[in-house]
Design a protein around this nucleic acid. Sequence first.
DNA 1: GTGAAAGCGCTAACAA
DNA 2: TTGTTAGCGCTTTCAC
Lengths: 362, 362
Amino acid sequence: MSKTEQGRPPGTTTERTGHKAPTIRDVAREAGVSIGTVSKALNGAGALKAETRERVIGIARKMGFRPNDLAQSLHRGQSFTVGLISNDSFGRFTMPIMEGLERELAAERIAVFMSNATDDPERERQHIDQLMGKRVDGLVFTARRADRRPSLTTNVGDLPRLYVFSQSDDPDSFCLLPDDEGGARLATEHLIGLGCRRVAHVTGPEHFEAVRLRLKGYHDALDAAGLDPDPSRIIKGVWSEQWGREAIGILFADPTTAPDGIVCGNDQIGRGVLEALRDLKIPVPGSVRVVGFDNWDVMTEAARPRLTSIDMNLYDLGREAGRRIIRMIGGETFKGVLRLPCTLVVRESCGGTPNEHKGQET
Amino acid sequence: MSKTEQGRPPGTTTERTGHKAPTIRDVAREAGVSIGTVSKALNGAGALKAETRERVIGIARKMGFRPNDLAQSLHRGQSFTVGLISNDSFGRFTMPIMEGLERELAAERIAVFMSNATDDPERERQHIDQLMGKRVDGLVFTARRADRRPSLTTNVGDLPRLYVFSQSDDPDSFCLLPDDEGGARLATEHLIGLGCRRVAHVTGPEHFEAVRLRLKGYHDALDAAGLDPDPSRIIKGVWSEQWGREAIGILFADPTTAPDGIVCGNDQIGRGVLEALRDLKIPVPGSVRVVGFDNWDVMTEAARPRLTSIDMNLYDLGREAGRRIIRMIGGETFKGVLRLPCTLVVRESCGGTPNEHKGQET
DNA sequence: GTGAAAGCGCTAACAA
DNA sequence: TTGTTAGCGCTTTCAC
């Protein structure tokens, strides 16, 4: 353990200089006015002589005065905070969502508490408990889950709450999700539009709702084009590159029935598919066109050729979550499931004209 | 946009039923005792008849009473919150750190505000401002940065602050980092121990401090083994698979000087290296042994063969950050740079005996 | 136009 | 053993 730590030995307690933040009272004293006057000056409320107002503001600024939100919240009964509870251990999908959410909330001066429950109901309960103690104005749940999650047993009263990239089994809840079905339809339509007639679907475990929805989108697109769905071209496995590679072995076992297009359940599968095709020297997009799902740059850019994919626009999903929870805090009510559109990002693996990030919508 | 949203049309403001959280006063009234008594009962302070205590606690529980932390904090002058400011847009490296941090803090009943500054000094200033308003007890900064970051101009007084996976140019600051140098040394030693005599290093852009440190570790290991460092075997590029592939073209241009071991600057490079070697039908680990850096499962597991790598133990780094900031809040002072050990995780790409996650330490 | 004071929900020191 | 009360820092109503 190469510690280059300096500083006092552990245990040494140094008094911090502790010049604490000035209070409104300090400002009042300094300015020679009453507390009420300072408050009015700072909040632009009430009637005040312009000169007084500016003088007070100037002094407050000079003193580095910053109102104590805790006191303010206590008075107002609103804390200007929201709790975010993740069950994905802040995973890959959660990040852009958090980012979008935080951005919208920051604009309204609402701060976000993050907590990670990692699918442990007991930890989740504790976290919610703490957040309730902090008097958060709302609760946002997120996760990557195969299924709906049981609604929480903890009593959160009528606190606004919202599920994003996650679902609750409470029928009164409000859930924000990507339009998996539309995304898969978009991918399939795109391949069909490029001339594919034998489109396969290599996807993940069926117990994921997303798998079922994407499958439906795939089917619908085939139907709409009058193409027969061949069950042997739909294969389910896991969410890995390894599975993508294996799937090619299965699909191309009999060359006479081999697909000319493949819609993949995610980008890892997509990349595995591309690698296996490369090993077999089957030209992409010459003989087979491939589309992934997630538009995860780490995968799409490193694949050979680069992988066309469906973007779930999770950042936007997070932003929408932020806007909604703000409205819910404002008193509006939402319920049901709202699905936001996915986008097609074309790269070389499907032979279309690369569009990078403009994409058609579902 | 396939919205299955139900609920009231936007703008409709429904009054929430609004039975607000009971206060300590409500509990006191209900129990027929004074406020002070309730407080004592709940906090286990003072002397109270056991029977009263239990009766009060029971009533409080039944009423779903949860003390208002805001009021408590106002009184105590401590908010039991910490602000986390990320400049990595909650990136891949930030996640495990956040997780570890949050875990340690949650155990001490400290909640974490997350905010994302994405390298915009103005946003960072605003965030800090807000957090100061919320009277956070400490500030944790994190980021993936090439260089040290300028210390913040905003006045945060003597609030405890800590940098994790990130550095400040303020000499009084305290920074927590992985031991990049030791990690690279570990990787190089391992290859040498397996018999490699011509070990190459394919890494990222030199303006990253991590690149310079890892290079030093690599050099030290060669020195210690009495091996001559050949400058042509050290090549710097970017952090991508693409670069890893290109690097093989360079290193193997002249077969007579080709390396028999490669230490890669990260796992993406490592994977690119493995792919290119595979394309060239150069057996791994038969002819060349390869080690990556980051131990990012998405890369290490999908690579063929699976990639041996150095784990920076970011989750532990996050936990240490949590413990330290807690101590700093308690009054201790730390300064300087503390580097935590990296771990070697052996898989098939280097031909050792796979150890998965036990790993030797630096 | 400005000051005084009540009160947000809690803790802790002091009284009873 | 229990009750009373003065704040914590702020907002807001009501006097002046």
